[in-house]
Design a protein around this nucleic acid. Structure first.
Lengths: 168, 168
DNA sequence: CCCAGAAACACGGATATCCTAATATTTGTC
DNA sequence: GACAAATATTAGGATATCCGTGTTTCTGGG
């Protein structure tokens, strides 16, 4: 599962030093922060996929199932899910295709708008989503390896970044 | 470029509230932090791709070019690059395939180990990498929309996370 | 010293995912 | 009622990962 052997030093810190040595000092910290985000996402997504693979789910499909399970009727229009989860409409289509073939979701016609399609979670979908959440909680979300204080720093800073990007 | 319309509230904060309401309090902050990392990566990678597209580069290929430009001889064994950039060997192969077809990199035989292949950056590759770095510095790395203090918090916390994952 | 087995290296094929562009249908608006 | 916008889908390109293969190098027992 691990990609390479252990490295002698932090490659991101080394890149940051290179930036400074080349005179790009104003961008050095930002470059290091961005690269850290990309790498951290690889790490957590790899852990998530490892936990989710035995359950035949990916993170994208897990997010859809969990979102649907939180709604009152267990269903949402496709476009609405794309907006809430910040993914492209085509990604929603392909993910729902797979979830439907797995029996976790079914497509229903929208009662008011004949253009729209409702994705509705099934009982099997609810059960699988719950099992996945319990596995992720215990094996990923409660095991990040950083302090509670650091977790909250992360949430706060990234919320500022997301807000600046127009996320909400 | 933006995916959906502006949302009324922070969807991650809403998910965190759902976690607490369901009694998964111990995992709520970790879930929010992980989801924030995933979303933040989407945001920064989208900005990076927008800047790099006119230069016919992706972030993965840009990283390879920049890494090579930082070495003394401008060349590295394929496996070594995979280890430094934390990507799979097959990803290195396909990225170098494309860079070679673009004329930014050439494959050379390793002088000592006939199994290995050296990827060597060309002059065109150096020029393109430099142009890309200047564009990314000005349009992404210096424009994150968060304070310098927050940038450094991010670096520190994510370094702890990466160290815990065995990155270095 | 020698040689058989293990490990490392790069690549090709198959699969899954995401994004872009284009399309058909339906709804809303002036 | 004509025209613009929204909705979901399909098709195509690019990327990343998993698995297996052929070649080369390393290692350890004889």
């Amino acid at each position: 599962m691990t990609i390479g052997r252990t490295l002698e030093s932090d490659p991101i810190e080394e890149a940051r030093r290179q930036w400074i040595d080349h005179g790009w000092t104003a961008a050095a910290d930002g470059m290091a922060a961005v690269t850290s985000i990309v790498r951290a996402q690889q790490i957590v997504l790899q852990r998530i996929d490892t936990v989710l693979r035995p359950l035949d789910l990916t993170f994208a499909r897990y997010e859809i199932l969990t979102l649907l399970s939180f709604t009152k009727r267990g269903s949402l229009p496709m476009t609405r899910m794309g907006a809430l989860l910040q993914v492209h409409p085509t990604s929603v289509t392909s993910a729902v295709d797979r979830l439907e073939s797995q029996g976790f979701v079914e497509r229903l016609p929208h009662p008011k708008d004949r253009r729209a399609v409702l994705a509705s979670i099934t009982e099997a979908g609810r059960a699988r989503a719950l099992a996945a959440t319990h596995a992720l909680n215990g094996q990923v979300f409660e095991q990040l390896g950083i302090t509670e204080h650091q977790i909250n720093q992360l949430r706060t800073v990234l919320r500022a970044l997301r807000a600046n990007a127009g996320d909400f």
